[in-house]
């Protein structure tokens, strides 16, 4: 069981530098992007905003896929991926609302306004938050996984609404504005950097959840074999 874990230990040596480079590139590109005509430097919020919004949507989609996977197979592995993506997604979704609100303050002169995309994004954030509240109320791991999976699948209905909100309904949120090539480059670099970082966090979080479950299973094995377990000794883990 653990030999698989040790081979994966090499992963950070490849992934961490790659992610670091991507994030650094994002920083530099955003810093170098030309100032916008009306908003000046404040428009740089936009690069982060679009990037986290994109990762948030991907995370929710991933959650729904993992939810389906769990419902069809009942394997806890799926639930760990689902939970990890929910956590990453919640962070991104929160950042989307915060950066969006900041941007709105500079661009539209208000912190929040009525707009289909703002509303659907808020709904997305509320659903992510509800996911954790729902899970917190259930003790049994499989039951918790099932409930979370079902909510993830239902909540996925909001993802197309968020993406299509600006196209289907007229609002104030821009669809896909014309951009300077330098700005496009900054946006791309920033999106790549954020995605890579979140992917790394996702993998680590998921591994942590896997290990947590393994520890719990080991404890249970010890109990099942008749001994009382007050903690795991080092020898049982090696």
């Amino acid at each position: 069981m653990f030999s698989k874990g040790t081979s994966r230990l090499e992963l950070p040596f490849i992934m961490v530098p790659v992610v670091a480079v991507l994030v650094a590139w994002g920083f530099v590109a955003v810093g170098n992007a030309p100032a916008e005509l009306t908003m000046g430097s404040a428009h740089r919020i936009l690069y982060v905003h679009v990037s986290v919004a994109w990762v948030g949507l991907v995370a929710f989609s991933l959650m729904a896929v993992c939810g389906l996977g769990y419902l069809l197979t009942s394997k806890m592995k799926w639930d760990h991926w689902g939970q990890a993506s929910a956590e990453i997604g919640w962070i991104c979704s929160t950042l989307t609302l915060l950066t969006g609100s900041l941007w709105a303050h500079f661009a539209w002169g208000t912190w929040w306004t009525w707009d289909p995309r703002l509303l659907t994004s808020f709904v997305l954030w509320a659903l992510f938050s509800g996911y954790f509240i729902l899970r917190a109320g259930v003790d049994e791991p499989h039951r918790r996984a099932t409930l979370g999976a079902v909510l993830a699948v239902i909540g996925f209905a909001d993802v197309p609404l968020v993406t299509m909100a600006t196209r289907w309904y007229r609002g104030i949120h821009p669809v896909s504005p014309e951009m300077d090539p330098m700005m496009q480059h900054a946006l791309l670099a920033c999106a790549l950097g954020v995605s890579a970082m979140m992917a790394l966090l996702l993998i680590y979080r998921c591994r942590q959840l896997d290990l947590e479950k393994q520890i719990l299973d080991l404890k249970m094995d010890v109990t099942d074999q008749g001994g009382k377990c007050h903690g795991i000794s080092r020898s049982s883990l090696s």
Binding site: L216, K219, M220, T223, D224
Partner: peptide, 13 residues
């Protein structure tokens, strides 16, 4: 048959 709830063993093999 084993049943664990929240780390607590209710039924053990």
């Amino acid at each position: 048959l084993s049943k664990h709830v929240d780390g607590q063993a209710i039924l053990v093999r």
